[in-house]
């Protein structure tokens, strides 16, 4: 709070890292915020909602897997542009992306979420939870929408979303990391940069602990996505094998 940081990281270094991460986020965020706000009045019409609801379950799963995979490709690019990420060993880069890329997609989702109408930008328009009915996982969808709503209630700025995304991605407690210490150092620096940005933006005390709570919510969402995918795969193994994007299968494979 007095402007001092850990003795090993200078203020200039934190400022530089915060700038690097914010820039990487803007360059790889898939949709600009202004673009999303302009589109927010475009919600799906009832007959379009009916169209999604009457799709066969496997077709809707495939569509969502494609959309998630597209979003994840941007997250991979975000990771690559974070100072220090590409210096980690390749095993750890993969471990972090396997565990964290969907979490970052959920964080980024709050940018594309309209709290007033409880809708999210999906497949060209804003969609409510009913659009995803055919997936057959109402509880997961409700949790994802609730998460987006609670993230929105924090009113994070773009640089705060960027720094929080990097913090989530660089989690040093993921299983199978080979050089845990390196990841830990990078995550600590990112956390300091996040604190620095929060202070600079004059955010209220307690915002950091609210963000920490979101970390466990994200883990639970991803665990539930995996459970729902396993249940789907048990019924439609061939659909997953032949029609799901290869990157999605690599990330969420059994």
């Amino acid at each position: 709070s007095n402007g001092e940081t850990s003795p090993t990281v200078s203020m200039a270094e934190l400022e530089h890292l915060a700038q690097n991460i914010s820039k990487s986020h803007v360059e790889t965020c898939q949709y600009l915020r202004e673009e999303l706000q302009q589109l927010s009045w475009q919600a799906f019409l009832q007959d379009e909602v009916d169209g999604y609801q009457s799709k066969p379950r496997e077709v809707m799963w495939q569509l969502c897997a494609i959309k998630i995979t597209e979003a994840i490709q941007y997250v991979v690019e975000f990771a690559k542009r974070i100072d220090g990420f590409m210096e980690l060993c390749q095993n750890d880069q993969i471990v972090l992306l396997k565990a964290g890329s969907l979490e970052v997609v959920f964080v980024r989702m709050c940018r594309a979420f309209d709290t007033q109408n409880n809708t999210v930008y999906f497949d060209g328009k804003y969609a409510g939870p009913d659009v995803f009915k055919a997936l057959g996982c109402d509880d997961l969808i409700t949790s994802v929408f609730d998460f987006a709503k609670s993230m929105c209630s924090l009113h994070l700025s773009e640089d705060e979303i960027a720094l929080f995304s990097a913090f989530v991605l660089l989690s040093a407690d993921r299983t199978w990391l080979q050089e845990k210490l390196q990841v830990e150092k990078l995550q600590q620096k990112t956390q300091l940069a996040l604190q620095h940005v929060l202070q600079k933006n004059q955010r209220e005390d307690g915002i950091l602990s609210k963000l920490r709570c979101k970390v466990s919510a994200l883990r639970s969402l991803c665990a539930r996505h995996s459970e729902n995918l396993s249940a789907f795969r048990a019924v439609y193994p061939d659909i997953v094998r032949s029609h799901f994007p290869p990157l999605y299968k690599e990330l969420f494979g059994p």
Binding site: E27, E70, K80, Q93, L247, E250
Partner: peptide
């Protein structure tokens, strides 16, 4: 490595397959 072929490719490519 074989198990994460696409991730490896994405990490090694200087430009991403997505149109950024």
């Amino acid at each position: 490595k074989e198990k994460h072929k696409i991730l490896h490719q994405l990490l090694q490519n200087s430009t991403s397959p997505v149109d950024l």
